[in-house]
Design a protein around this nucleic acid. Sequence first.
DNA 1: TAAAAAGGTTTATAATATAAACCAAATTTT
DNA 2: AAAATTTGGTTTATATTATAAACCTTTTTA
Lengths: 93, 93
Amino acid sequence: MKELNPLLHSQLRLAIMSILMNVEEADFVYLKEKTESTAGNLSVQIDKLSSAGYITVEKGMSGKRPRTICSVTEDGIKAFEEYVDALKSYLNL
Amino acid sequence: MKELNPLLHSQLRLAIMSILMNVEEADFVYLKEKTESTAGNLSVQIDKLSSAGYITVEKGMSGKRPRTICSVTEDGIKAFEEYVDALKSYLNL
DNA sequence: TAAAAAGGTTTATAATATAAACCAAATTTT
DNA sequence: AAAATTTGGTTTATATTATAAACCTTTTTA
């Protein structure tokens, strides 16, 4: 049986990637609302995806408030697609 | 976003369930070979699925050797199918 | 100006997965 | 016929992970 990339096989990280696969970019606040996660957990998981090179993270300002924008990288897309392929063999889809 | 049943969202438990969804029953040795897991890990995860009522486990003898036979329950089938549904929304399948 | 909210990060804790060590019975080797 | 190995597991320890709690700084509101 195929391996399931452990970096993607985590509910929150998978949710983040899933969202980012469908949009150009998404900011911290949007990801938090969509995933219904705590800020702490989200921050940690964003870091891990970023460290793995699956997403890029730009910390900037929106007016006077900080704004963290994420988007998926080529590597991230590839990893996500491979993960989906592997999962399909588990779920017979 | 939907919750992913944490009992099923584990590589090895998902692999076990995936196998059992496609056969009448499977024994410990067969599951170990198919999943390429260690005996210890397999034993633990079988227990968890069993405690959750997702599989039944019969410990008997085959000739002079012990034999542990597993099969999925109705509850297990239902949980698996719900898990697959939830996952689909993450993977857009 | 004091209090609360926004947007996060860091640190501590609880849960999980995994492997290592172990056990008893059966089989094989010497 | 001992001794060593294999089979079929279980139990316990360890390393990783996920998660939440506590915290920080700046901005906004009361």
